[in-house]
Write a protein that binds this DNA or RNA. Sequence first.
DNA 1: GTACAGATTGAG
DNA 2: TCAATCTGTACT
Length: 184
Amino acid sequence: MRKLGRSFFARPALAVCREILGKYIVRVCRGRKIIGKIVEVEAYSGPADRGSHAFGGKITARNKIMFEQGGLVYIYLIYGMYWLFNITTGRPGHPAAILIRAVEPVQGFSGREASGPGKFCKVFKLDKSFYGEDLTKSKRLWLEDNPEKIKVNRGPRIGIDYADPYWSKIPWRFWVKDNPYISK
DNA sequence: GTACAGATTGAG
DNA sequence: TCAATCTGTACT
């Protein structure tokens, strides 16, 4: 299976979003492989995005990785309890990332254990040690291609109602049509 | 320095 | 409906 390289991630977030659905994410932990098929993602792109941590182009210790090249891990703690896993996209200087919201079990776990951004990180044992990890070089976490054709649906993002009406409604959430493993 | 809300989740 | 409790931001 072909590993996804820099050229896949160094593109606009929305393009990566649509194409990353159906791809495999592989985690190696203590000699065992955990594999999931990505079935739900959201895009956060540009300094004008009210829902993004990079809104206004402001750089903080937490979000600075969003301003770097595509293919890096942006992981952060939310509500003091849950890790949320993002992959940066695009080119240096343009803050963009896509949030992995749900994956379908392939190997190493089962059921809907990864059907939600916080749950996914728990099952895949992802934490702050992955901050800035390069997915094109890492030996413990990477993505693999899948030639399978996927039917993609799109709609508004989740959990950002605080943003203004325009940004909270734009359809930057993508998921695999009729897949039972997307988050509720 | 204090106050508060958030890209969530599971329990009640 | 609420609490778990870290991080950034807007105040005093």
